[in-house]
Computed example of a mutant assay.
Amino acid sequence: MQKNLMIYGSCVSRDAFPLLDPEFRLVSYVARQSMISAMSKPTDLLPGDALSSAFQDRSLVGDIRSNLLQLVRRFAGDLDVLVIDLTDERLGVVRLPDGSHVTRSHELVSSERLKAVQGRTQDIRILTERHWTLWESAATRLLGALSQMGLREKTVILNTPWAETTHGGEPAPPFWNFDTPEVNAYFSECCAHMRSLGFKVVDLPEDLRYAAADHKWGAAPYHFEDSAIAWIADQIQETAAVAASAVLRDSEAV
């Protein structure tokens, strides 16, 4: 039986898809869209030409349009699993003059759309009080919407602390000179907040927190070895199985 999967996150989750059982079908993948941006109003202040990469262009346009909830609502009735990871929150957001927020992604910066904005913009980085205030509010509203759509039991949130070393003991390259333990503590607080709202959060085991020395997307503290990706695939399949059992019990109780 076909199982429909949606991913809201990054390559950390997306790389696990090929390891899933064949019946899983990826119906939507939303990347490079901070929760702050996703729950912001769309903006008309960033027109521009399409990017050469279809995936990058789709991600950038989706972020500008804050289209996450629109996509979730489109597929909610048929979803078996929604996977969320917070890796792209590392990018922070930009506040625009109209009060909206967009993710400070590589796609946004390289598109040079920000240069055409009339008025003051503000970079808001993670690890700051301002980012936390905005993120906590956005996460609360997003998870509230997911609950209303009946997706709480079908959602799994990945807490994947960044690696400090490779399995061989080599230091993992930093991201934007951020302190990895500090980033991990920040994401841990984010996950604790989502867990407090009744959502399933799974923590990558410590013995799997190693950066891949030869990852296909390049070296980064959030590009893990195959064993970590396999663990993520197992969490997705377990969530689907538990959710399906719950649906069956509810139908038998009627």
Rank of each mutant, 00 (worst) to 15 (best):
Gln2Arg: 15
Asn4Leu: 09
Asn4Thr: 11
Asn4Glu: 13
Met6Lys: 00
Ile7Arg: 01
Gly9Met: 11
Gly9Arg: 05
Val12Lys: 02
Arg14Cys: 11
Ala16Phe: 13
Ala16Pro: 03
Ala16Ile: 09
Pro18Leu: 13
Leu20Ile: 02
Phe24Ser: 03
Val27Pro: 07
Val30Thr: 08
Ala31Phe: 00
Arg32Met: 12
Ser34Asn: 07
Ser34Ala: 15
Met35Trp: 10
Ile36Pro: 02
Ile36Ser: 02
Ser37Lys: 06
Ser37Val: 04
Ser37Phe: 04
Ala38Cys: 12
Ala38Val: 06
Ala38Asp: 06
Ser40Lys: 08
Lys41Ser: 05
Asp44Ala: 08
Leu45Gly: 02
Leu45Ala: 06
Asp49Met: 14
Leu51Tyr: 10
Ser52Met: 09
Ser52Arg: 11
Phe55Asp: 01
Arg58Phe: 09
Ser59Cys: 15
Asp63Phe: 01
Ile64Cys: 04
Ile64Gly: 00
Arg65Gln: 14
Ser66Ile: 08
Leu71Cys: 03
Leu71Glu: 13
Leu71Asn: 11
Val72Thr: 11
Arg73Trp: 09
Arg74Leu: 14
Ala76Val: 02
Ala76Arg: 04
Asp80Glu: 11
Leu82Thr: 05
Asp85Gln: 00
Asp85Trp: 01
Asp85Leu: 03
Leu91Asn: 08
Gly92Asn: 02
Val94Lys: 00
Leu96Thr: 05
Pro97Cys: 11
His101Lys: 12
His106Arg: 08
His106Pro: 06
Leu108Ser: 00
Val109Phe: 09
Ser110Cys: 04
Ser110Gly: 00
Glu112Leu: 15
Arg113Gln: 09
Arg113Cys: 11
Leu114Tyr: 05
Leu114Trp: 05
Lys115Leu: 15
Val117Gln: 06
Gln118Ser: 15
Gly119His: 03
Arg120Ala: 12
Gln122His: 15
Ile124Leu: 14
Arg125Phe: 11
Arg130Met: 09
Arg130Lys: 07
Arg130Glu: 15
Thr133Ala: 15
Trp135Glu: 04
Glu136Tyr: 08
Ala139Ile: 06
Leu142Met: 00
Gly144Tyr: 09
Gly144Leu: 12
Leu146Val: 13
Ser147Asp: 01
Ser147Gln: 02
Gln148Ser: 10
Met149Asn: 01
Met149Phe: 09
Arg152His: 07
Lys154Met: 09
Thr155Cys: 14
Thr155Ile: 08
Asn159Leu: 10
Thr160Met: 13
Thr160Val: 13
Thr165Phe: 01
Thr165Gly: 01
His167Tyr: 02
Pro171Gln: 08
Phe178His: 07
Pro181Ser: 04
Val183Gln: 06
Val183Phe: 02
Asn184Gln: 07
Ala185Cys: 02
Tyr186Thr: 02
Tyr186Met: 03
Ser188Lys: 03
Glu189Asn: 14
His193Pro: 01
His193Ile: 01
Met194Asn: 01
Met194Arg: 01
Leu197Gly: 12
Leu197Gln: 10
Phe199Tyr: 15
Val202Ile: 05
Asp203Gln: 04
Leu208Thr: 12
Leu208Tyr: 13
Leu208Trp: 06
Arg209Tyr: 00
Arg209Lys: 10
Tyr210Ser: 12
Ala213Cys: 12
Ala213Arg: 12
Lys216His: 15
Lys216Thr: 13
Tyr222Glu: 09
Phe224Met: 12
Glu225Tyr: 02
Glu225Asp: 14
Asp226Trp: 07
Asp234Cys: 06
Gln235Arg: 10
Gln237Ile: 12
Glu238Thr: 05
Ala241Glu: 02
Ala241Phe: 02
Val247Thr: 10
Leu248Tyr: 09
Leu248Thr: 14
Arg249Ser: 15
Ser251Met: 14
Val254Asp: 06
